[in-house]
């Protein structure tokens, strides 16, 4: 049943969001701390475990794959509702601060990726998610 996969996905997201919200309260932060990331961990665990096989294989899995495939269209819709006008009206300081932050962060990607590779001499990469 397709809905089983969709339900599993939903439960993962809700559990992750709840934990993220609790983390926010515990840390005294007015934000959800990593709720989506935690939900993703749940889904990874469920899809790698035998116990949830009936919820992740066959047509049930198709229910999750559908939403995974809808990701790009949803991101396009997300782009179409950004407050682009406000971003351009913020003046020079907003533009310079935003651009500079992005440029410096981009430059750090290869540096930090190297640190990760050094600490763990990593042979044979597994096939990353082939579901997309």
């Amino acid at each position: 049943m397709i809905v089983y996969g969709v339900a599993l996905l939903s439960v993962c997201l809700i559990l992750g969001m709840l934990i993220g919200e609790v983390l926010g309260v515990v840390l005294g932060v007015d934000a959800n701390v990593g709720g989506v990331g935690i939900a993703m961990l749940f889904l990874v665990m469920a899809s790698n475990s035998k116990r949830f096989k009936s919820l992740t294989e066959g047509t049930s899995g198709a229910g999750i794959q559908f939403w995974s495939a809808m990701y790009i269209p949803i991101v396009v819709a997300m782009a179409a509702q950004q407050n682009v006008a406000a971003a351009t009206e913020g003046g020079m300081i907003a533009i310079i601060a935003g651009v500079a932050a992005v440029v410096v962060s981009f430059a750090l990607v290869p540096v930090l990726s190297k640190i990760g590779a050094d600490t763990k001499a990593s042979p044979g990469q597994g096939q990353p998610g082939s579901k997309l």
Partner: peptide
């Protein structure tokens, strides 16, 4: 494109990801 469906679809992309990949880059 709102937060709810965006997060739902983002989580769905994790389907099929291998745990080992996540652990490998965990520290970094």
């Amino acid at each position: 494109g709102g937060g709810m469906l965006r997060d739902f679809a983002i989580v769905a992309t994790a389907f099929g990801v291998h745990f080992s990949e996540l652990k490998k880059a965990g520290v970094a």
